[in-house]
Design a binder for these strands. Sequence first.
DNA 1: TATGAATGAGCATTCATTCAT
DNA 2: AATGAATGAATGCTCATTCAT
Lengths: 218, 218, 218, 218
Amino acid sequence: MPTKKKPLAPVAAPARRRELLDKAANVFAAVGYTATTVRRIADDAGMLAGSLYYYFESKDAMLEEILRTFLDELWEAYDAVLDAGLSPRVTFEALVVESFRAIDRHRPAVEIYQNEAKQLVAQDRFLFLDASQTKFEKAWLSTLERGVAVKEFRADLDTRVTYRFVRDTVWVAASWYRPNGRYSPEEIARQYLSMVLDGIAVRDEQQAHAEPHTRSRT
Amino acid sequence: MPTKKKPLAPVAAPARRRELLDKAANVFAAVGYTATTVRRIADDAGMLAGSLYYYFESKDAMLEEILRTFLDELWEAYDAVLDAGLSPRVTFEALVVESFRAIDRHRPAVEIYQNEAKQLVAQDRFLFLDASQTKFEKAWLSTLERGVAVKEFRADLDTRVTYRFVRDTVWVAASWYRPNGRYSPEEIARQYLSMVLDGIAVRDEQQAHAEPHTRSRT
Amino acid sequence: MPTKKKPLAPVAAPARRRELLDKAANVFAAVGYTATTVRRIADDAGMLAGSLYYYFESKDAMLEEILRTFLDELWEAYDAVLDAGLSPRVTFEALVVESFRAIDRHRPAVEIYQNEAKQLVAQDRFLFLDASQTKFEKAWLSTLERGVAVKEFRADLDTRVTYRFVRDTVWVAASWYRPNGRYSPEEIARQYLSMVLDGIAVRDEQQAHAEPHTRSRT
Amino acid sequence: MPTKKKPLAPVAAPARRRELLDKAANVFAAVGYTATTVRRIADDAGMLAGSLYYYFESKDAMLEEILRTFLDELWEAYDAVLDAGLSPRVTFEALVVESFRAIDRHRPAVEIYQNEAKQLVAQDRFLFLDASQTKFEKAWLSTLERGVAVKEFRADLDTRVTYRFVRDTVWVAASWYRPNGRYSPEEIARQYLSMVLDGIAVRDEQQAHAEPHTRSRT
DNA sequence: TATGAATGAGCATTCATTCAT
DNA sequence: AATGAATGAATGCTCATTCAT
């Protein structure tokens, strides 16, 4: 998406661009997009606020590029999984793993996405977020539904509600996950899958517990 | 909670205050705190921006009152559960139910909390969020640990990771839950508990699946 | 100056008016007119800001009345002195004494006058300050000039410059004079007159000192 | 005197800063600090209000710099005088001369000081005004007391009252003195000293007048 | 490549004032 | 005689953005 009226960064210098976007993403994630000043980003990059406009059209444009880059890479991985012809359960597991890998590689972008997407979709510039969201929902929901159909997933769950729970469960991890921390993305994924697939309760023969006591509370 | 010098809304008129806080909370939740202008709140309330200051000291003060009100009510419910001497699993279930009830009653406040808490704790005025957070973690974590001890919860899960998983999943529901929607908070809680306690996978199959395929991927 | 459109204080209740003006004058003097909020005055008077408008047309109107009252009383005393047919020197002394008495009785008003008059005269409402100022200058200047003419005052002083020094000398005392303090207004006047009339230097026969060393500095 | 985070006017461009402070000082002096809007200062400088913040942290910061610059220069001159080992009377004369020179060079700052100092000292930022005030009083008072001790000044005057008298008279001159007017600062100082040291009354007359008529009035 | 200086729109907040009760 | 609630204009200040150099 080169040149409009101003020349902008001469297409070259993409390394510096990436570097700047990286700084920006970290600040956006840490402070929130609205609360982040262009000056703050420039400070982090060791330049003056105005100088950023040599590389980017606007603050919004920086945000857009950060999110696009993240989503492009995410979908590459997702599409590979979805096109692999795996069983629903294995697909489910693979999607979770890829999600944690995306968090690992694009933590700031994921956090920004989580915090800001809702407001952003109101702007034309960020309509692509909506498209991604829709595609995302379709991928997960159909995986769940196929799983129910082939009896890999329980039939008594509302798939839409389950979808939301699972989706949030995965992505919210970006708020506390730290790359190079105790667990690799694959290990975190394993734990998550263990919980989501098999539950946290100890299994036993009597079904008593299967029906939580909430019923009597309503 | 009386104020410094200004009498402000003469202590009476608490109805109007609550009404205004309600409008404010909805805007804060929908648009984000920083992005919300007091003009916007005033517009929604049918008054001029300056008039809000008859009732509230500042925009921050509104936010504080919104969050305090929510947390106060949440802790009343939580404390009742925690002091009831229930088994870990029943405690867990009850906490989940109360959480969804809080979301039902204070959805905007919960959403604000989710989105803004991280930035807010840097301000003295919002240190109480940190205190609440700590107490919250203690309550959940100890419930999980007690559950593991008495073999109501699986011993092979990292309790801290499980805690985050549960915490996030529950509260993130505020972003999509709509009061008066299809499900009551208790019904949502039931579905959630069903998933979290027992997993979404169909049981009593071969144990092969218990070990997800991720291992072979790293 | 009764009623314009609004009834205002029913002409009666002049005691309450005076009380309120007194509070107002003290705040104006202490904090400065612009920096004084109507709310602050009302607080001091134990009422709400809006309630002041039952008694006064506006904040400006309060200020006007405070200054008018002061100047009216000052001129009554000044006129008595000026009309008494006294010698220039005795007139001078009497004017100084009356000035300190005015400070004693209207300290806040004097302070306000000192601080604000310059800005106020730009407004029509306060043109009377200019008139008073002119009359004031005439009274003092002519006294000084008459004194020079009859050789009661030194002929080698620039009367305009001397006028300004004397004028300021007297009135600036309002900034530190405290009624009921160590000195009565008459005693302060005596000290001031002693300095201004006879100087603070010890008198001696040689005139050497009469010519300060500043000449060699220019 | 570097600033917190913002580099502000990149340390260079001190000429523009001084120019702007000059405009600001004139407005502060003419209109009063509180009554001065930053828009007004910006107008005078031919820029927009917000642009001032490229050079200065705040309106307060401008005021501070104006007053500090003035006081720094004043104390340089005062200290030179005080350290010169002059007799009390010559010290007195020299301090007066330096005061009028300061008025000549920093008239707006002096006027601002006169009008605003009392309110400003309440703020931490302006505590240095208090320090200067204390040092100032010590310098003048000790000069007067030394003068009394060596019989250069009359012993029958209250030195504190005399101090205030002299202090006020000198500085209030800033309200009417106009640089490039009829008199140089040295000439004004000469006239002032003539009055204050020797009095305005014609000497060697009968002593009857030495005791003003006030006594009979109390 | 970047800076320095400025813009202009917008923001939270203050405050004198109004007026029905 | 005073209150409670609101107005509306102004204020100090911030910030994304521009552009000549």
